[in-house]
Design a protein around this nucleic acid. Structure first.
Lengths: 352, 352
DNA sequence: CTGTTAGCGCTTTCAA
DNA sequence: TTGAAAGCGCTAACAG
């Protein structure tokens, strides 16, 4: 840091004790106006700034929180687009509350759960912990984490399907209702043959989206042939393959919901290869609303995830957890369907 | 933190002094094997982890570095795509060197330079400082920063156009030669009417790219009418406007280099509106190689910036600066031209 | 090689 | 309302 000036020197100049200086700095009520003024002037002239490390040691807390990104290798650009706004939300909230944020990034692929936690916490002392992941977390990892007693917030995916005492607070975003909303939109536009390209099944939201799709089909009492579900892996390629699979079926679908935008991009590619017009011949909906969605031709209808709000809410809940010990809650933020030109009404065609 | 176990208790169990425990932890050479073993066993059974805050206070250093994102509001998704890989590079490097990284994000719009620096450094004590920005920094800001004496690395844009003693270390990526390479490519494909859409002039790299373009034209002794340079602002729209402007000129260009990918996307849009085929009627090159570039139709030829390497090199240089006081260097990493289907040879057309 | 001890700079009782 | 002093947990200089 920039200074060697300590409270002692301030106290010397202001002709008070270090205790008084400390009180002034911390806005303690029991200081005379006179003393306060003297101290503040001394601080000003010496250009004093408190040593935060010493303060942390004395107080037993660091005012630091750790934001940990837990991903698989390699991290895709679309993941980055999801994560940085969250980080911004966290940052903006904590900036208002005198907390600093540390970050860590680790791969879930490499080491054993306990080792991973050790690595994450090595060389760090923090008052709270935000875990950002869209992958299911290992039970061992969560248990080990619980033992540390550090207040924790999970963003995007949590440990909430584990039995036993709840660990931390979990903030999710809606995957379920919004897929039903997408289905309903297509249905209201006359579509009766709606297919789905699902993503990697070890990601919680992939399961949720698929379940929601199935449930929506059931709700409208529509026939859902198993061929109308293609098991992709969130990559562009698997979207392409999905379309090719669907168009080998006699009863080809008229609309397709993709579990993420990358697969939707792949689907649009494949549709063009098959000389299908979007949306006249086939309506397509994605999920994530990544930048690509906005700039594709036609612009892709997609689900926007409230990333920034996920960050701010997570930060707020962590603070509550640190101060009031609240934990075990799960919150789900609503997502938004952004309708663009990749969907349209089904015309001149016999339904179902 | 999770523990109240201190060195003293470890010392008690191992029947040695706290000094010895400290030595073991810090791998001090002067400890007997026997003592070391005892201490390690005690640490193990008590599950002791050192209090890093106390260590920092005793040692006078924090093993923390601050990564500060300095942007304008609002931050665009394409900026995020550029920044997170850098952060990853920084993270990966420091993970190997027992440093933790804190992050901060502030807008350059809001406050005065000195206030901004205060805000950035408030509630933080760090051994080093990485500033990530693609905007020109205010001289007052840089001066104030220099006064703090914190070792600093600038990534992406630095204070190196200021006179006086150098501040910190600057890591840049090549903007100049790679634009010339792009020009050369187009030239070698037969293009003789090459236009340029430039970006916001208060960003250093925009200036560099424009200068490089001009210089390349000069090198090939080609006529460069001023109408062949359109002054955009890095937005998609300005790319669109650029094309429309170019196609009002009698001698329409056959190839266009855009100072970033978003404008290239806009340019592609506009070209399609004008019923121009890409690349047969018009070749287009962008800059940044954002995800959109890869998934556009046709895939966009673009310049890839070595973001991850920018992060690791910056981190390495900061460490050197902290340990050996080295500073004032400027490094420039090479960029790469990624050729995709948005450019082709100019056919059946009279040149110049 | 190891124990003792004096801080690091700040907060926070406890008395006054 | 204030000063004195005892730590917070660790490191490092010093003596042995």
């Amino acid at each position: 840091m920039s200074k060697k000036i300590t409270q002692r020197e301030v106290a010397g100049l202001a002709k008070v004790s270090t205790g008084t200086v400390s009180r002034v700095i911390n806005n303690h009520p029991l200081v005379s106006k006179k003393a306060k003024k003297k101290v503040l002037r001394a601080i000003e002239t010496l250009n004093y700034t408190p040593n935060l490390v010493a303060r942390s040691l004395a107080q037993g807390r660091t005012q630091n929180i750790l934001v940990e990104f837990l991903d698989k290798n390699p991290i895709l650009p679309s993941t980055w687009q999801y994560e940085l706004p969250i980080l911004q939300g966290i940052n903006d909230f904590f900036a208002l509350h005198d907390y600093s944020i540390q970050i860590g990034m680790h791969s879930l692929d490499s080491s054993s759960p306990e080792k991973l936690l050790k690595k994450i916490l090595s060389n760090k002392s923090v008052d709270g912990f935000i875990i950002l992941t869209s992958w299911d977390l290992d039970k061992m990892f969560v248990d080990a984490l619980a033992k540390t007693n550090i207040p924790t917030v999970f963003l995007g995916n949590g440990p909430y399907n584990f039995e036993g005492t709840p660990v931390g607070t979990t903030i999710l975003f809606d995957n379920y209702h919004i897929i039903q909303e997408a289905y309903t939109l297509l249905h209201s536009l006359g579509h009766r043959r709606i297919a789905f390209i699902t993503g990697s099944e070890n990601q919680l939201h992939a399961k949720l989206r698929l379940d929601a799709f199935r449930e929506a089909a059931r709700k409208y009492q529509e026939d859902l042939p198993e061929e109308y579900i293609y098991y992709g892996d969130y990559s562009v390629n698997s979207g392409t393959e999905g379309i090719h699979a669907f168009f080998k079926i006699p009863e080809t679908p008229t609309a397709i919901i993709c579990s993420n935008d990358l697969m939707a991009i792949g689907a649009m590619r494949a549709a063009k290869e098959l000389s299908l017009n979007i949306p006249q011949d086939i309506s397509i909906i994605g999920f994530d609303d990544i930048e690509v969605a906005l700039y594709s031709t036609p612009p892709l209808t997609s689900v926007k995830v409230p990333t920034y709000e996920l960050g701010t809410l997570g930060a707020r809940k962590l603070l509550e957890s640190i101060h009031e010990g609240i934990q075990g809650e799960t919150h789900t933020l609503p997502s938004t369907l952004i309708v663009r030109n990749s969907v349209c009404r089904l015309n001149d065609q016999t339904d179902s």
